[in-house]
Design a binder for these strands. Structure first.
Lengths: 325, 325
DNA sequence: GAAGCCCGGTAAATCGCATTACTAATGCGC
DNA sequence: GCGCATTAGTAATGCGATTTACCGGGCTTC
């Protein structure tokens, strides 16, 4: 009685319901094309419930040749509120299709992604940026059927963010913009993509290209950038994200400058402290539900072998206007 | 040739190496008590390398009755830098023992933890706070051998943080402290634990108990709390974390108060924007490596059935003094 | 020279499930 | 009463590993 409570198998359920293990399998996966009377079906279902039966994932995966695990690889970047929401949303959307999302932080000391993929037996791997071909091949070898994002689709999804930032500032009458890059290496390419959007918007408005400067989450470094921007006649900054924007605000403080009078600043993400900044930060948010749904659909489509790989990861950014612009 | 590149099995390796599949298994798991000449061993290893063989996790788990997956359940809390570091560190520490860490965000829409545990076939589940007995039982039924933290050990680990916060302020001459709780429900119990440490420190110093007030990440709410504290003669605040502290700073700004003159504020975590606040925030950090190592050891011990469950999750907090105190 | 033992290795059972192939019983038309 | 289709299932097989049981040959030992 004090046994480790051996977990019940499908045979146990079969015995309890008085049917064969095959039938249990049919009922539990309600296999189409199989004629099973409602009465039997209920009997099996009830037996399973009573025994608190849960199919053994490994056995199922082994037999079916496919697991229901989706692995999300998170690059070595600070995990902010935005990413959390993405993960949570994706997990929910996939759960609705009986898929389980697990995440893996690609840190310096962790195991390489293909190893992890193989270790969990994931049948799909989704990342933030496109994987390089070699990695994709590796992942397939490791058992993944679907690997997303597939193409360089990602970069286009980031452009609108920069565009909206820039357009807002241009509408406000600013003629010379600056762009604050991030010091975080994992975020560099994303920053370039967003900067691309800013450049486009400036070009469209017939303005000179933005002055992009590297910054870090250090007030002194940011202060240097601020000095440079001021010297060049820049009056408004598109920051890579809210943390970068906060750093700029701190850098301005060091020079006795105030926002938005001396320099308007706009961030991205709407982190919790964005509205608490001095002044409260204008920022960009986007409909995470939409993004999540798209991604989930892409995974599902891939798993269903629907070659309709139209993973148009379009995002629909919205501006949140506060006092920093 | 354009085949989906069927992944190699251990039999393939056996064939390539000219030995039996059993031998391959012995070599790859370098099973003790088995006499295998170096020459054969190398032959197998090389064949495996050539074929890019990776054992099929599901099959292995099924046969061995145990997977090498550790599932980390992250409660519905904002994932800050601290948690990221914890995850990364833990993943690394476990990887050193051939264990794979995957995480799962316990959001509103996700699947219940036992389901996830069963889905990935985790042999250990670790969380942040103790699970309730019912959940623990469920997890064991779902296949987990080890579930941590086991006891209410956690709360004690949080006390030192509050104590150090309070002692610092008391040393600075403050006689009446306030405590800023968080509005986040998932963090409430952790906040209470930390508050416990503050209460202890006050009692030891012969001071009245701190005035604990609920706050949120909204400047207005924080402003109300600030007014209340001021009215009660409180001169220093221990904030649950840096975000809460940032909110208090914003609330003070609304009243035209400045820190630390009117109210000293100390946070916890040292989030990236802590040093960028106005004034830069004094805060608490702790040695994540230590925490991580302890947890990893506890998991390993549990898996090895070493009943030495001395998971003394002690942490060693350090103070980072900036200008807000 | 037979008994025992270590060495180097293999055959076969097993894990829990999905799936394919098959069957016994019943209904139906003629 | 025969052939055939449908219903309601079951038996058997296999997924890719681990693990147990076993085996032939050379060596020692008595």
């Amino acid at each position: 009685m004090t046994r480790p409570a051996k977990r019940p198998t499908s045979s146990d359920v079969a015995r309890a319901a008085g049917v064969s293990q095959t039938t249990v399998s049919f009922v539990l996966n309600n296999r189409p094309g199989q004629s099973i009377p409602e009465e039997t079906r209920q009997r099996v279902l009830e037996a399973a419930r009573n025994l608190n039966y849960r199919p053994h994932a490994s056995a199922r995966a082994l037999a079916a040749g496919r697991s229901d695990i989706v692995l999300l690889s998170i690059p070595d970047i600070p995990i902010g509120a935005g990413i959390s929401r993405f993960i949570e949303g994706l997990a929910g959307a996939l759960a609705a299709h009986k898929l389980t999302l697990v995440t893996h932080l690609a840190g310096a000391h962790g195991r390489p992604l293909p190893d992890v993929c193989a270790a969990v037996g994931a049948s799909a791997v989704v990342g933030f940026e496109s994987f390089d071909p070699a990695t994709i091949k590796e992942l397939h070898r490791a058992g993944a059927e679907v690997v997303l994002p597939s193409h360089a689709e990602h970069s286009y999804a980031m452009h609108p963010i920069g565009q909206i930032q820039a357009k807002h500032l241009i509408e406000r009458g600013h003629q010379r913009l600056g762009y604050a890059l991030t010091a975080h290496p994992g975020l560099a390419s994303m920053a370039r993509d967003r900067l691309g959007g800013v450049i486009e918007a400036c070009a469209e408005a017939g303005l000179p290209a933005p002055l992009a400067l590297a910054t870090s989450l250090d007030a002194d470094v940011a202060a240097d950038a601020v000095a440079r921007w001021s010297a060049e006649g820049v009056t408004a900054i598109c920051a890579f994200n809210d943390e970068t924007a906060t750093a700029i605000l701190a850098g301005m403080r060091a020079h006795g400058l105030t926002s938005p009078q001396d320099l308007a600043v706009i961030g991205v993400d709407d982190i919790p402290t964005a509205r608490l900044a001095d002044p409260p930060l204008t920022t960009i948010i986007f409909d995470m539900d939409q993004v999540v749904t798209r991604r989930a659909e892409a995974v599902l489509a891939g798993l269903a072998k629907t070659t309709d790989q139209s993973d148009q990861a379009w995002i629909d950014p919205q501006i949140v206007v506060r006092s920093s612009t």
